[in-house]
Design a protein around this nucleic acid. Structure first.
Length: 362
RNA sequence: GCUGGGGUACUCAAGCGGUCAACGAGGGCAGACUGUAAAUCUGCUGCCUUACGGCUACAUAGGUUCGAGUCCUAUCCCCAGCA
């Protein structure tokens, strides 16, 4: 198993890594300075949304999305495959998905997007890791529907790989300076489809493989499929849990061999008033291998208006160092927007500490 | 003192004879959120009950009516204008 993540500039970062989602080029509520202070290795940006909002020319001219945005740490990109699910398949509009690609309709505007587009733009962005465009099903999909997306994902993966190689050649990128290209395993909850997807993708050959699709099953993280994949994928490849996940699920995945994660949960939960708190008095005493090693803290609850302690004593983030629970609760109910930033910082710091704890065992 | 307008659940606020346990908003409580069209969304919020249903309620007391938060009378408060 690989021990380190290699950035385009040659710098290495020890696994496991968690990348907060900066879908549109920014982690919601945070400045890049905030993200850096939190101690995470980089951010994940979304190819489809950035292509829509920034465009290819600007990015190429600026020498990559990193310098366009002014971000100097690691950056990985998602292909836009998830948006096929979250936007195109949500129904009710004119979006369509065919083998050729996908047509999104957002606010009445049509956007065409193909596997080739995704790779070309990811190359133009010069992210450290990129993901093939994939297709997947909603949780209630039938076997036949899941099979169709497995086949399409394989078809697209081939074209993504070809585009990747062509772009590397066209741009004269030396072998050791190429971004990681991740294939995404599909197959929903059907083990044989997952195996088929793994077989087809590994035949094409990728630097790593992602646990794709709907990772939740009946309201719980589908650890069985995560294990199936870890057991059947090449041991020397990178394992990426796309959209994973809750802190305890990340712990389980790291134990299975997963190295890279990204998820909206810490940032979205922060905005929605769900803060993560380690059940330990101080950072040194945190044991992430203990059952239920953390709990939720909701600053919106009126009961916290009297509490003069910090949100967590096992945390060194700006929120916990400067604001009491009472102050946070008060400011939350006053709709002071700055608390969303502090809450986001807190949850991301929680994830950063989690990854540090998980990495120290390497 | 006169004239006019009001008193509705934790708060604000609809309601103008039945479809009202009472619109809506806030607050409160609970839940959801997993490659971000989410600083969002969903419930519950008089009492008993899992529910059906029952009970008690729209300042207070009477009254009219088959039926009253809604109409009438008196009383108590509040507000504006005039004295």
């Amino acid at each position: 198993m690989q021990k380190n993540f290699r950035r385009l500039d040659g710098m290495t970062l020890p696994y496991p890594l968690f990348f907060p989602d900066a879908t549109r080029g920014e982690v919601r509520q945070l400045s890049f300075e905030d993200v850096k202070k939190v101690g995470l290795p980089g951010i994940l940006v979304n190819t489809f949304h950035l292509l829509r909002l920034v465009g290819t020319e600007k990015t190429e001219l600026a020498g990559g999305i990193r310098s366009h945005l002014g971000w100097d740490k690691a950056m990985i990109s998602d292909s836009g495959g998830f948006q096929i699910m979250s936007i195109a398949k949500k129904g009710g509009d004119n979006s369509t998905v065919t083998d050729k690609g996908v047509t999104f309709t957002i606010d009445g505007v049509k956007h065409h997007f193909s596997p080739e587009d995704s790779i070309k733009y990811q190359m133009a962005m010069r992210t450290d890791l990129m993901v093939v465009l994939d297709d997947f099903t909603p949780p209630d999909a039938t076997y036949e529907e899941a099979l169709m997306t497995v086949n399409r994902t394989t078809l697209w993966a081939k074209r993504c790989k070809a585009t990747y190689l062509a772009e590397c050649k066209r741009l004269n990128i030396p072998r050791d300076r190429r971004p990681y290209l991740i294939g995404v395993v599909q197959g929903a909850y059907f083990d044989d489809l997952r195996i088929q997807s793994i077989r087809e993708l590994t035949e094409i050959g990728f630097d790593g493989y992602g646990y794709g699709g709907w990772v939740m099953r009946d309201g719980k993280f589908d650890i069985a499929t995560a294990k199936l994949m870890a057991d059947n994928l090449p041991k020397d490849s990178v394992l990426y849990g796309l959209g994973i996940g809750k802190p305890d699920d990340i712990v389980k995945c790291v134990e299975l061999g997963y190295q890279i994660f990204d998820c909206v949960l810490p940032t979205r939960d922060a905005r929605h008033g769900r803060l993560y708190v380690y059940k330990a008095k101080e950072i040194e005493k945190i044991d992430v291998y203990q059952d239920s090693f953390y709990e939720y803290y909701n600053p919106r609850q009126a009961q916290h208006l009297e509490e003069n302690a910090p949100v967590s004593t096992a945390c060194d983030c700006e929120l916990c160092m400067t604001v009491t629970r009472a102050e946070l609760a008060k400011r939350w109910r006053e709709r002071d927007e700055r608390v969303l930033r502090l809450a986001t910082i807190h949850n991301l710091r929680f994830y950063a500490i989690l990854m540090e704890k998980l990495g120290s065992g390497n």
